[in-house]
Design a protein around this nucleic acid. Sequence first.
DNA 1: AAGTGGTCTAGACCACCGC
DNA 2: CGGTGGTCTAGACCACTTC
Lengths: 239, 239
Amino acid sequence: MAQESLHKYEVVAAGIITMIEDASPHDLLPTERALMEMFGVSRMTIRAAVRKLSETGQVYNVPGSGMYVGFREVFSKSPRLTSFTEDMRSRGLEASSRVLSAQSVRADSGLAARLGLELDAPCFRLHRLRLANSEPMAIEEVFVPESILRLDDLDLGQSLYEQFASRGLQIYRAEQEVLAVILSASDCQLLQVPDGSAAIGVHRVSSSNRGRPIEFARTFYRSDRYTFRMIVNRDEAVQ
Amino acid sequence: MAQESLHKYEVVAAGIITMIEDASPHDLLPTERALMEMFGVSRMTIRAAVRKLSETGQVYNVPGSGMYVGFREVFSKSPRLTSFTEDMRSRGLEASSRVLSAQSVRADSGLAARLGLELDAPCFRLHRLRLANSEPMAIEEVFVPESILRLDDLDLGQSLYEQFASRGLQIYRAEQEVLAVILSASDCQLLQVPDGSAAIGVHRVSSSNRGRPIEFARTFYRSDRYTFRMIVNRDEAVQ
DNA sequence: AAGTGGTCTAGACCACCGC
DNA sequence: CGGTGGTCTAGACCACTTC
C-alpha cells in the first residue's frame, strides 16, 4: 500500500528512507549526483528531500565528504507541531481523553493578549485528562475564542482539531514554551502520581496559516512517562 | 560596521530583517519576485533567505497569498544548539560559572552507551554551577571521554567548547531530551531555590560533524528563571 | 484571470576533503 | 587533484488565493 505522494521530493525522501532502513548509523549514502540518476530528478529535488530528512536527523551531511545515515532512530523526532493523538501514536500508544469540564469564560488580560482578543471576550475552556493506552498521561486545558467555535457548537466526543478544520481553520504553527512545574494535589491524583510530583508544562498558542490565534493550551505531562526529544543543530561556529 | 557575509542569501536575509524591524507582525512583505529585483539575485537565493528567516519565525509564508512579518519577537528563537554562554547572551544576560568538582571517572553502562565507549572507559566529569548576571541559573554535569580531552589537559578557566575546537573538534549536532525533575536538597541550595523545587532537566549528547560523540551533559535549569521557547510548524494536515 | 508561493529543471562555480 | 556538498542562476509549470 504505497502512499501516493504528490511531490517528487517526497517520493525521493521515501526512497532514501528505505535505503536507510537496511543501514547502520554513520553509513555512507550515495552522492547527490548519484541519487539524481537513481531517481531521475534534478539535484535541487534531491536536496529538498535531503533537507526534509536531515531536519529529523535521519541523515546528515558532511561538506566535502558525503551524506550519512543518522545516529539512532530513537532520537529521530525533532519537535514538530502534533496533536496529542498523533504524538502518542508516534510513540506506539493509543490516545483517548476524559473531559473534566467544559465551560464559558471571559478572557482575562493574559488570555486576551495571547489570543489577540479584547478583555472579557467570550471564550470556552475545555479541561481534559489525556490518556495513553488508558493510562493518565497529561492534563490539558484549552481556551478557544467563541468567535471561532461556540461552546454550544462544541462536540465533546470529537477531535477539537477536526472541528476547527470543518470550519476551514487549520492549525499551521504554534509558539510554545516548555517549563517544569510541581503539580497540585488534585492534578497528582488525576495523573496517578505521588503527591508533589514534577511535570513538564507546555504553554502553546496555535495559529492558522494567516497568523490568526485559534487556541491557547496549557498541558502538563507526567515526567515519569513523557520527555521531549529533539535534535538540535548549529548554524555557525561555537561561541 | 556591516558584517561581511560570505553568502548572498545571508545578505538578503539581513536586508529582509531591516525591513522587518520597521514593521508590525502580520504586515505584508514584498513578493519573492519583487525581492529578486530589489536584491539582484535569483529566486532560489531569495527562498534560501526566507527559509532561514521562517525557521526562526521572523517571517511566514501563506501559499497563494504572500509573505508576512512574524508574530512576536519574544518567541522568535526556535531551539538551536547553543552553549550556555550564547544562550544567556541571547537573553541579554552575562554568563559565568563556578566549578563544583572535576574528577576522573569510569564510564558505566549508560554513559558508555551514550558516548559510544567501552564499559569502564576513562572519562572526566566536570560539575559546574552556571550563573547568569552572577545569579545561579543552572547546574551542569558534563562527561567527556579522556580519549578526546584528558583531565590533566583540562583548563578549568577556559570554555570547554574552545578546548574542543583547539583540538579540531567542533560540535555540530546534539540529541537532546527535556524533562522535569524535582531537585535534591543540595541542588536547591546551590540554585538558591526553595526546597523541593522543580527544574527543567536537559540531557544532551553532542557530536562532531562526523557523528563522533564528544560530550554527554546533564543540565538542570531553574524553572522560575528559565523556559524553552520555540516555534513549531506542521508538515501536513492535522490528524 | 492574475498573482502568489511551492516545486522543479539543467545547468554552473565554489570551498572543502581525501588521496 | 578529483569528488563532495553548498550556493547560485534563469528559466518553467503548478495549486492556490484573491479579485
